[in-house]
Amino acid sequence: MLNEYKTYNCKILKVTPEASDSKTFTLSLPYKGFSFEPGQYVMASIPGFGEAIFGIASEMNDKKSIQITVRKVGTLTSELHNKKKGDLIGIRGPYGRSFPIDLAKGKNVLIVVGGIGIPPLRPLILDALENPKKYNKVYIFYGCRDESTLLYAKEYPAWKNVCELSLTLEKPLTSKYAKGLVTTLFDVKDIPADAIAFMCGPPIMYKFVLAKMLDKGFKPENIFISLERHMDCGQGVCQHCAIGTKYVCKDGPVFSYAELMNFKSWLSPI
């Protein structure tokens, strides 16, 4: 019988240090024909250290490799950081519902990301770079703690060719960047309220950003949010990620705000 828990060994093709505490791993494909959509994730593991989920951060059309960006926060991620080119990482997946990028075709797109929330939206940004005509205008709002935590900084010049990138730092160390939370960007930038919004970041960010967006006239059904949850199985059995009648692992992690409004807020569904 097929075993969904089976993990596939992927060779590390490249390790790219990213900001002060993160690394991007370029991995060989887990198996032939592996493909994914922006917002989907994989379970990555090292024998003896367990598994954890990581949003796939690479280009959708890359048929040779995938990338995950890992911030060092716990035992597994620390061990991942010890891995070198040529070592193996176990991968299973991809899992989950992606950001509905088809819905955004030809429309304005707003990407709002905070801290380590940017990797699952990088495939979408790279898609926009690859197909500049696919979306109308693409705005990126990215908030971080300080300069040392900005991910993919080397790519920003390329992103700026196609997207309007706005960065803001909570505690900037220099005066190069704007100071403030990502919400402040809504006061400075004028974003068309008909944009399809994609968000990923800490729950606290959602609360304030959503208030701003609804205020600006965004429709709940056009706002898509990726939720983070504790997950063990990745297929809607183990119950760790359940909210209401849904499982974040397989019905999400991406939900529209219109869907999320149906969940009981006192259980902190976001």
Partner: peptide
Amino acid sequence: CFCFRMYDQSNLEKD
């Protein structure tokens, strides 16, 4: 009730 958690356990023998 069937919730479960998954974890790795290493043996005394290395790796």
